[in-house]
Amino acid sequence: MGAAEWIGPSDGEKDKLDINAIASSLPAEASALKATLANSIVKGVDDMRRTASTEATQAKATQRRLAIAVVAGSAVAALASGLLLYGQGGADAPVSSSLVSLAKQNSVVIALLQIVSLLIATAAAGYMAGKDFGKLWTEYRREAETRRIEIFNNALALIGESPGTGDESPLRQFLEFFRRYQLDLQISYYKMAGQREDKSANRALFATSLLGGATVVLGLIGGISPALLSLSAFLGIAVPIVLSATQSWATTTGAAAKAASYQSAGKALQNLRFDLTKIEDAADAGNVADVKKFMDTVHGIMSAENGAFVGAGPLPAPPPTPRPARQR
């Protein structure tokens, strides 16, 4: 058995960068990697990464909830306004008459719904403007990604002091660790995240297309059937409101942009993975420089993906790796 077997095959659905769990799962033969992962300059950076990642997740979830409140609250308030105006009119057609009657009978409830919806939308919009959770998410995500890269930089710097040779060498152990918990894990992440965001973007596109078509159909209904003219007029107000809300949600979430960013980065890493066999040979020969060059290329793709998506440029370079004595 060699380092590849000690580290094990990648599992995109279950793997995660948990330094403590990874170190605990390693066999005794992988002592060099175990010692490296236990080093304070690796564990300390991992603690900072985990904190930033948690903060990013919370900021994103809060932004999503507030965005839903703004979009949905505004849409409901606008629909309520249209229904109140609709209830002020009259119609002889049975369908229109029943709707007008319903609107009149429940005008107080509809008005309260309008007020509450406006209150929710306004409060959520104000809170978002004051805290700017989108910016917080961007900052925390960049911090987490920078620290993630720093973990591997620090680990390689420590291993590079005594890289050894062969398929059980400390350098090969590091490469297998990098392969499973950085390269392959990022490929899996980009693939799954890209598929998720692509589905979200497609749902929004389908909804906007359907509502856009409905707007045209409603106009035809009013022209073909005068009895339904009043109903068509109301729906002609309501449907564009829902359409606008759907488009606002698609813009707020940025699903299409996320999907494109993730898919592009994932393909770049998959293409780079074809060089892995050559880098394994370099690691077995104790060639730290080639391993580092490969690692830096992977990190460059990750940095570009993050910078392209958030519009803030590539990730900042991690700080130089400190050089304390290796822990035994």
Results as ranks from 00 to 15, higher is better:
Ala259Lys: 02
Asn287Thr: 06
Leu218Thr: 11
Phe178Gly: 04
Ala72Phe: 09
Val108Cys: 01
Ser40Arg: 14
Asn287Glu: 12
Thr122Cys: 04
Phe206Asp: 07
Gly2Arg: 13
Lys14Val: 10
Glu176Phe: 06
Gln88Ala: 12
Leu156Gly: 04
Ala144Thr: 10
Met192Ser: 14
Leu235His: 00
Tyr181Gln: 05
Gln88His: 09
Ala214Ile: 13
His299Thr: 08
Val95Asp: 08
Ala93Leu: 00
Leu171Val: 00
Glu197His: 10
Gln263Lys: 13
Arg64Glu: 14
Phe274Ser: 12
Lys43Glu: 10
Ala35Thr: 08
Ser230Trp: 01
Phe152Val: 01
Ala21Gly: 01
His299Val: 06
Lys292Trp: 02
Lys293Tyr: 05
Leu272Gln: 09
Ala30Gln: 09
Phe174Ser: 02
Ala75Trp: 05
Leu118His: 04
Asp167Met: 02
Leu175Asp: 04
Ala285Pro: 02
Arg49Ile: 01
Asp11Ala: 09
Gly166His: 02
Arg328Lys: 13
Lys267Met: 04
Pro240His: 11
Glu55Gly: 01
Val298Ile: 14
Glu197Arg: 10
Phe274Tyr: 08
Lys191Arg: 13
Ser230Arg: 11
Thr252Lys: 10
Asp290Pro: 00
Arg65Ala: 14
Thr36Pro: 04
Asp290Gly: 02
Glu5Gly: 02
Gln173Phe: 02
Ile279Leu: 01
Gln58Ser: 15
Ala201Tyr: 05
Ala250Asp: 13
Ala282Leu: 03
Ala91Tyr: 03
Ala285Val: 03
Asp284Asn: 14
Glu55Arg: 10
Ile187Val: 14
Glu145Tyr: 04
Ala207Val: 12
Ala155Glu: 05
Asn271Val: 02
Gly73Gln: 09
Gln105His: 06
Leu84Pro: 03
Arg64His: 12
Leu229Phe: 12
Ala193Trp: 01
Thr297Trp: 00
Lys104Arg: 15
Ser24Asp: 15
Leu272Met: 08
Lys191Met: 03
